[in-house]
Design a protein around this nucleic acid. Structure first.
Length: 326
RNA sequence: GGGCCAGUAGCUCUAAUUGGUAGAGCAGCCGAUUCCAAAUCGGCGGGUUGGAGGUUCGAAUCCUUCCUGGCCCGCCA
């Protein structure tokens, strides 16, 4: 069976964009593969300024609860917090010695993030793809689910693996991408990618009333000025969301109703909300149960870290032997 | 190691009459309008003026120091 690795940054409350783009896929993959999933807190250290210690701890807990609330089953995969397996940092150093500055400088994400940096452009943000390569290779993962924006980083991880293997002997498999079927999800403003920092997200654990209110304010086809005007679903971001949540037959009814002005945008949004709630309501319930029992979440993460450490330790021993240290 | 320039709202600032009540545009939020949203119109909030200290009745403004960014020079390899 192939081993899959994937990581998610603890950047605060997760939203439906994260779910559609990654989380949903994590769960599906865990049914067919051996999956290693990590809450990558060391990566979350790279922005400048970094989050405070309390903020970091809060985010890690929040993301853990959300993942479990989404239905991720820790008996079928390995879920752990990156910093609890120190081998990630150790392997990152070893691999970093084989990563080319020129390659790292060419990374689109590095260029973007270094512009956003408010204080300094730290080494961490530059070396980010190296740590990412270490995350994957530490578990000798062969498959990595990636979004559009991460293919460049995975390509670099393959390059680093190749180089290491050439110098020190065959150690790492070259990880292959599993291209995510979901395109990028736009936010409530209908223009920009859904993101917590832009405030245009629908949170997975957001209260139902809040989802309702904010969905009502979501951008629709600007050409449809009056209730009696016909609309164009192809120009309406809300309609693309129907594509993610509403069954085909009902979705077609909405499209037809919109084009003929038989229904209004609020009617259309209400249909979407009904189907959205079928996904979100169970998550909220599970999250509430998990929050009531934080010790259980901690236990699950500790057990996950144990499993991850066992693999990481073996890989690192091999790596140390190959490079000639210890 | 030495020197020079810069830092003002989330963003962009040649706003602040040179020491006398911290401003504008965009973004944001609220309202009107609209089936909702957008557009338009109206309104509102927002800042320890990079941090700390000092001079002064009074500091964005002057002084000291630190941080961050940019530039010049020197030294070592």
């Amino acid at each position: 069976m192939e081993r899959v690795f994937s990581g998610i940054q603890p950047t605060g409350a997760l939203h439906i964009g994260n779910w559609l783009g990654a989380l949903r896929n994590w769960i599906a993959l865990s049914e067919r593969h051996e999956c290693v999933y990590s809450i990558v807190d060391l990566h979350a250290l790279t922005p400048s300024p970094p989050p405070s210690a309390e903020e970091m701890r809060r985010r890690v807990r929040e993301v853990a609860v959300t993942l479990l609330a989404c239905g991720l089953d820790t008996s079928r995969c390995t879920l752990f917090v990156q910093s609890e397996v120190p081998e990630h940092a150790e392997l990152a150093w070893v691999l970093g010695c084989q990563a080319a500055m020129g390659d790292l400088q060419r990374m689109t994400q590095f260029k973007e993030k270094s512009e956003q940096a408010r204080e300094i452009v730290g080494l961490g943000i530059f070396a980010y793809p190296v740590l990412q390569a270490a995350d994957i290779l530490l578990y000798k993962a062969t498959r990595v689910p990636v979004g559009e924006d991460q293919v460049q980083h995975l390509e670099l991880a393959r390059e680093i693996a190749r180089r290491f293997n050439r110098i020190y002997g065959a150690t790492f498999p070259e990880p292959e991408p599993i291209l995510s079927p979901t395109p990028r999800v736009f936010g409530l403003d209908g223009v920009r990618k859904m993101s917590k920092s832009l405030g245009n997200e629908i949170g997975l654990l957001e209260p139902a009333e809040s989802v309702k209110a904010r969905l009502a304010g979501a951008m629709t086809d600007p050409a449809r000025k009056r209730r009696t005007d016909p609309g164009d679903p192809a120009k309406c971001n809300v309609f693309t969301w129907h594509g993610y949540f509403t069954p085909a037959a009902e979705r077609e009814e909405c499209a037809k109703g919109c084009r003929t002005a038989a229904i209004g945008c609020l009617d259309c949004k209400e249909v979407l909300r009904t189907h959205l709630e079928k996904v979100l309501a169970p998550m909220r319930e599970r999250a509430a149960a998990l929050l009531a029992e934080p010790a259980a979440v901690e236990r699950a993460l500790r057990a996950g870290a144990e499993k991850a450490r066992a693999i990481a330790r073996a890989t690192m021993e091999e790596v140390r032997h190959r490079i000639g240290v210890r």
